[in-house]
Nucleic acid binder design. Structure first.
Lengths: 137, 137
DNA sequence: CTCCAAACCTATAGCTTCTGGAGCATTAGA
DNA sequence: TCTAATGCTCCAGAAGCTATAGGTTTGGAG
């Protein structure tokens, strides 16, 4: 028997976020106490921990919803779960590549060492004039 | 004399986004035609291109607002512009590091090759059981 | 048993950065 | 002059929460 606050402390998911997940249908509406407060059991705790972990890995609510649905059917083949994870890995890698491009760009931009005036500041000029860029964003 | 559509085509910023930037105060409300349509000149085009470029680099609206304000005073020292860019570079680098951690984690998770059932799928088990993780997120 | 602070409840709004739609007006070219 | 493309305003929605207001319940101390 956990209150919503217990659940929050044990999973690291904030209280309003738990209620939000309930509203989004990621977790079922739990039983209530006589005074209408939410009361959870172990399975809900595990489910929430699963969600938390998947969110930490950057999976979308939609993907998590799919994975949770899959996990309800242990007998089915797991190709779909595999696909979701692989797909996410690809987007993570793309994001990394894009950010690394920005990193290189910004490194060039901050070559300005802050000891002249805005008029010839490289930061400002680089932003104003795209043709100064090395890459093609 | 550009219409909002011209401006959009020339800068790659979508029409509703231009109106949104006007509302947010990033660009001034331009003159209007007799029929109340927005009419822009070259300086607005350049300003919008600046914004577009900065957004592509991932700078927040707030940072861009600051940089635009700075660029209005070419005589001032550019230390502040430099600071904004450097700070952003740091957050970009942090984001890269974090995503690389996720990448490693996901690589382990997708070791499941999709040819068994959900019941013993590594993806599902890894998400359910945090203790299987190598790192400490 | 009584009291009170902490925790809980619902409902609603706000954050960020746009994006899209409805319903109507203007513009530019044939 | 006609009409398709474009423009206008206002409003809602997306993602994933977070916060606030105003009220109720709970659990432990005295």
């Amino acid at each position: 028997m956990y209150s919503i606050g217990d659940l929050s402390r044990r999973t690291g998911v904030k209280v309003p976020t738990i209620r939000y997940y309930e509203q989004m249908g990621l977790i079922a509406a739990p039983e209530r106490s006589e005074g209408n407060q939410r009361r959870y059991e172990k399975p809900e705790l595990e489910r929430l921990a699963f969600i938390r972990h998947a969110r930490d890995l950057g999976l979308s609510i939609e993907s998590i919803r799919d994975l949770l649905a899959l996990s309800q059917h242990p007998e089915r083949p797991c190709g779909e779960a595999d696909r979701i994870a692989k797909e996410h890995l690809i987007t993570v890698r793309e994001k990394i590549a894009q950010l690394q491009k920005l990193e290189r760009e910004l490194e060039r931009v901050v070559a300005c060492n802050g000891d002249h005036t805005i008029g010839d500041c490289y930061v400002i000029r680089a932003l104003a004039d795209h043709s100064m860029c090395g890459s093609d964003h």
